[in-house]
């Protein structure tokens, strides 16, 4: 009887009816959990028994020499490549291995590719507007109108990416660094829970790198960010925790200092690049 009374109470919003802010469940652990993942292409093991966990709100840098499996790892997370074995979980509720690429993207995993692709014939503002997570079907798009909240959201991202002054400029005339920031901004507009960023500072000047570092560290806490990068100076400037990949599995993990003093790491990677730098 009590249950009937409860149901008749029209003020009450039941848990299952309340719109979930994000369906990703991170109450009991990390936002990304990879266990014993293995992928091989024609016998070559690109990823070999990889174990990796990313905490909610963490900023993690992944480094490793060429062919260490960094890009393949991102492909697995975004659903582009299917592993031969292992488990990949997003939160504790979503098994990413059973989901398709668009579903994973919709769930809140955003990926920034190496080469910036922005819509050059549109302004910075319009680029962000198109990236906003709203109804993207044809007719709603035709009749779409920006409300105050959406404008605020775009303004917020413009401030975050330092593109306020360029808001009405065509994206095509932005510098290389500005295009990278705009693209990160377009990812942020989609409110991802986890951002995968592939080599964000390739080809950037020192100042642009500093701005990018600020941008990425500013994102951490609100979103989880995974950065794959070659530039050691840049990694040192942003990373709290670094994971070193080598031949498809984790070689070392820890703070930059810990990792740098690890003899195995020095052998395969850091030693050479320190000298080169």
């Amino acid at each position: 009887m009590n249950i009937l009374k409860e149901l008749a109470n029209r003020d009450r919003v039941f848990d299952f009816l309340a719109p979930a802010d994000s369906p990703v469940d991170v109450r009991h652990g990390p936002i990304l959990y990879m266990e014993n993942v293995t992928v091989s292409f024609d016998g070559f093991k690109a990823i070999d028994n990889l174990n990796l966990t990313i905490d909610d709100g963490e900023l993690r840098c992944i480094i490793g020499p060429n062919g260490a499996g960094k890009t393949t790892m991102m492909d697995i997370i975004t659903g582009k490549t299917r592993p031969d074995a292992g488990q990949v979980w997003f939160g504790t509720r979503h098994d990413l291995l059973t989901m398709k690429e668009p579903e994973i993207a919709h769930l809140g995993i955003g990926r920034k590719f190496q080469k910036p692709t922005v819509f050059e014939a549109l302004t910075v503002f319009e680029n962000l507007e198109l990236a906003m997570s709203v109804d993207k079907r044809v007719i709603p798009t035709l009749t779409a109108r920006l409300n105050g909240e959406m404008r605020d959201r775009i303004d917020e991202v413009l401030v975050m990416t330092g593109l306020v002054a360029q808001r009405h400029q065509l994206a095509g005339i932005l510098s290389h660094g500005q295009k990278q920031w705009l693209e990160i901004g377009m990812l942020i507009m989609q409110r991802p829970r986890l951002l995968l960023v592939d080599e964000p500072v390739a080809g950037m000047t020192e100042q642009e790198m500093e701005r990018t570092a600020e941008l990425l560290t500013g994102l951490a806490g609100k979103q989880s960010v995974v950065v794959v990068e070659h530039d050691m100076g840049f990694v040192r400037s942003i990373a709290r925790k670094v994971t070193v990949l080598h031949q498809g599995s984790v070689l070392a993990e820890g703070s930059m200092d810990q990792v740098q003093s690890d003899p195995r790491v020095i052998e395969v990677y850091l030693g050479e690049s320190e000298e080169a730098a």
């Binding site: 819509f119 014939a121 549109l122 198109l130 044809v138 798009t141």
Partner: peptide, 13 residues
């Protein structure tokens, strides 16, 4: 409209 901007976006990328 925003649809027009989507058109231009899809034309270019």
């Amino acid at each position: 409209s925003k649809l027009g901007r989507v058109c231009i976006a899809s034309r270019d990328a």
